[in-house]
Design a binder for these strands. Sequence first.
DNA 1: GTGAAAGCGCTAACAA
DNA 2: TTGTTAGCGCTTTCAC
Lengths: 346, 346
Amino acid sequence: MKSSNEVTIYDVAKALNLSPSTVSRALKDHPHIRKETKKKIILTAAEMGYRHNKFASSLRQRHTNTIGVVVPRLNSHFMASALAGIEKITSENGYGLIISQSQESWRKEMSCVSTLFNSRVDGLIVSLAFETKNLDHFNILFNKDIPVIFFDRVADCHGCMNVVIDNYKAGYEAASHLLEQGCKRIAHLGGNMLRNVYSERFRGFKQAHYDHNVEFDQNLLFITDMSVNAGIEVADKILKMKVRPDGLFTANDTTAVSVIVELEKAGIKIPEDIAVVGFNNEPISQVVQPNLTTVDYPAREIGEIAATSLINQLKNTQQANLSTIVLKHTLLIRESSIKNNRDNNK
Amino acid sequence: MKSSNEVTIYDVAKALNLSPSTVSRALKDHPHIRKETKKKIILTAAEMGYRHNKFASSLRQRHTNTIGVVVPRLNSHFMASALAGIEKITSENGYGLIISQSQESWRKEMSCVSTLFNSRVDGLIVSLAFETKNLDHFNILFNKDIPVIFFDRVADCHGCMNVVIDNYKAGYEAASHLLEQGCKRIAHLGGNMLRNVYSERFRGFKQAHYDHNVEFDQNLLFITDMSVNAGIEVADKILKMKVRPDGLFTANDTTAVSVIVELEKAGIKIPEDIAVVGFNNEPISQVVQPNLTTVDYPAREIGEIAATSLINQLKNTQQANLSTIVLKHTLLIRESSIKNNRDNNK
DNA sequence: GTGAAAGCGCTAACAA
DNA sequence: TTGTTAGCGCTTTCAC
């Protein structure tokens, strides 16, 4: 068993005294081939150790059966689940996947997109980096009618589809919940407001204040990179305030947890002193003490729907006319935000 | 700006009144091309919007400049970092990356490997799934001399390289630390002993007992799938024991944290009642109360080294003769394992 | 230093 | 239902 000499359809054809085209057709289940012939071909191809050559095929067909994915990072539970969803659907439909990370950087995102473009992906599934200010780097794809689907961190763009949750509503619910717990000064820890997920959550947050007749103090707005460090810094700022907030809504769990840990170190009681709500329902939200109230949403399903939509667009040459799909979320109320539970502490 | 008609080297050649071969050579920096010609070619190629066609090139050259990666999951901090390391090196060297997840399943791992094989990857970087019992599914690669590098979860195999830490020593140190804290009955929560990482850690663990003249009670050995649920189940078992352990070594942080949370719910004090050591230094280890003693190791570097070695093997046709690279680890001692700190609680 | 030409393996008109 | 044929775009001998 040594290297190099690959078996081609020509070899199979010769062995069976057929033409290469017949073999090709049989191998891809073309209708106009007699059943027996097909069976025979498939069998001997396998026996001879034939393997399909994607390059020849892609070169000829001018498409690659490969889908590109660009995400900010893949080390969150949310991303891992979404990716699992994408992977499931694409592999079921015979597509390969190339995954790349923008590391939250605009520059890196550009380079990912261009690499994937050069890899001739048939379509792209994207969740935008923190920093990304415009969609110009996707023009190379748009110009060639290569479909792009955004999920979670999306952007308006002519004719490409978005898969999201209702971040406005989620933000509204989170803030309302805190307000209903009696909070009067709720801090908001959000990310770059360029990103829909952060701006929408904040918009909902403010609307809830308005509807509850509570004024939002702009000094309680913290815009950060949503890292663990950012959480620590914000906690320190809060500690230094003369009048501290009595509530905090943080647009992701990781940062929320980081704030909580830091505040607790300084002797602040959660939720008594400050009630906290996070976002994403990361596993860590159930480890931190007290357990974190958070917004749960179907990551895996988001991935599946994004992938399904892309594949539909790829198959039906006509553009799918859907522009946005919105999935459901749930506010999971846990200990970190319940103000009036002085006694039922397990 | 519309679809389809791609610019080829023929177009560039025609525009410049040169031959395609010259263009091809110029574009890949072939030495025997005059500097000016080269410059001119590169310039107009860019102007005309030429992009290299990987398929034609791969078809012709019989290699793809693509490296495949198979990992159990990518939702751990460790994996994300390792992958980041791999990505850095491969992209610096002009290789593309195809990442796939075995989801800890042997069957899925086989299918990943075969898919990557069919994608004609030039080499493979692998961390084995939990379940994998043998390496037969890699034979298709071995037979064609396609290099395979294993990292973290590795296996003996003729001529393929491993990048690991000294799990035996780490297990030894973890157990020694617990024993030196005065633990006499230390439970071991490990994974499938087929995997080096678990068997070696356990071997070190036992040896430490031996060297400290403490007998290890086999009833305190828990072999699980290292999931969050497994942690909960083990905690429940521990709670039901007549004589409980006074120490616990868990071969990863996620499971360790899950055990701790569950034990604490039942009123067990960590570390006073049971001192705990985890493994991996996941971020969660610094969130759980008390902070988790754990083993840290250079995930990113492991990835970088694995990638570098693979690329070296790819470049030098002669086999690199290294067979195993061992990186350093550190036992990070935190509160969860310190028995005698009744007072210095932060 | 540059060009001509063959062919990598596959697919899809078109023909039979 | 099957075969013939002409490329897909690139690289690479071999010539010049």
